[in-house]
Write a protein that binds this DNA or RNA. Sequence first.
RNA 1: GGGCCGUUAGCUCAGUCGGUAGAGCACCGGACUUUUAAUCCGGGUGUCCUGGGUUCGAUUCCCAGACGGCUCACCA
Length: 500
Amino acid sequence: MREDDIPSALAGEGDLVRGRLEKLRQWRERGVEPYALGFARSDVTAGIKERFASLAEGEESGYRASLAGRLMALRRHGKACFADLEDREGRLQLLASLDSLGEDGYALFQELDIGDIVGVEGEVFRSRRGELTLRVASFSLLSKSLRPLPEKWHGLKDVELRYRQRYLDMIVNPQVRENLLMRVRAVQALRNFLDANGFIEVETPMLQPIPGGATARPFVTYHQALGQNLYLRIAPELYLKRCIVGGLEKVYEINRNFRNEGISYKHNPEFTMLEFYWAYVDYRVLMGFLEEMLSAVVSEVKGALAFVYQGQDLDLSPPWRRVTMLEAVSEAVGMEIASGTPEKELRAVAAEREVPLEEGWGAGKIATELFEKLVEPNLWEPTLVMDYPREVSPLARAHRDDPFLTERFELIAAGREIANAFSELIDPLDQRERFEEQARRRERGDEEAHAIDNDYLRALEYGMPPAGGLGLGVDRLVMLLTDSHSIREVILFPHLRPEA
RNA sequence: GGGCCGUUAGCUCAGUCGGUAGAGCACCGGACUUUUAAUCCGGGUGUCCUGGGUUCGAUUCCCAGACGGCUCACCA
């Protein structure tokens, strides 16, 4: 191929790409368009394999199939050639030979490369070695591949390449597709469960004038026509609760949240949350409902409630252990921590256990910090941790028996938070006080303190029915189901810095 | 953001006590009509991440940077 025939964008790509560009040119010279419009296929490989599973070695099926997919391997034997064709659901071996294709057709087949997308047509039989095979009677090139695929045995291992070129990762690493399917099935199962229980799915704003519903730093964007800053939502909570005020009674949303914070093996700037709100129930009802929902979903998509996660047995079978947060902390530090324990004592415990604290934290925040540092990482089996302090729960209802606490619980499993739920705070005057408390924190420099949302308060002032609400981290659940260490394994296109 | 580790052929990796590097697969040429990590013969295709420094000479040593991984911090 002459230098000036090589598209400039591919000029630096080396001999492998150059050779394939030359082949592309030759296909066109022969009058074959190497990028087809489509292909009528009669079957997919998985269907063929299922249908002819009992075909004996050396036996012909008498069935003529047409299939399309990517060539993943070629084993050339002179006047015959075996190939592996991969489509969405599996692989099937092809046999192309001088006998089946004739001299011209076979010569053309020899021009194909691994990675090319082809359509083939021919009879299905089982080879002498027992492999179900399609004898290629005719074929067409549907899309010429210009770049070589990664190595067939070791595959693509470089983590950075896997994330940057996820399409390539998907081609060569079946686990990626399996993880994705697990994710899809889990989300479907969650939807089915909620739908079956009378919840309706709604869509609330991604672009919010006041980012609320969580304590987190938001992404800011700008609306030109309105001349207004908007924030990518950090949670849908306040809008979903407006729906409860509006009388929808049982609503949920499964969608993305965005938080402008660090990236780690368990944090991606955008992640998927399920939140649901249910009128006329409290957090005690939600605990049982969550047990039901998760065990239904997990047993459906995973086939079992007990499985291995990162080398350790994990059993999600209900009932789960229930413990109050203060009990759990008391147990961990070996002394009684209660809602009356003075801040000074808590600070002493933190110092003794080398848990760093900040100025301005009250007893509730300090107790929570002790829980998150000393207890949460060690809670492997699913545990419902109840009754978080009011100080760290600006949207949760005060506990019926203890004004220091709220009616809130989290599900912790494998040392991490999976879900967070509470009896919702529906008293507009209490909510206003909580917002004002947050505003004072914000003035003191806490960027993550909750902003005052006056329209939300106005909604509450019309009267919100008592309700329970729950949020569940979908990515984190899927991490458990797919035995993934990193959240990036369950997100198709995780965020990375620009390539060097 | 801090600490540690990594970056060498298309991919997976080795290696150079400082003298511009080599395996497997892929690829190219040849043999082969039942293989499936096909086999056999021949061929190495490279910005050794980038930029400085030291040196007669740097892919190797030093410094800075980029990107990634792990981890800590922050969070879900």
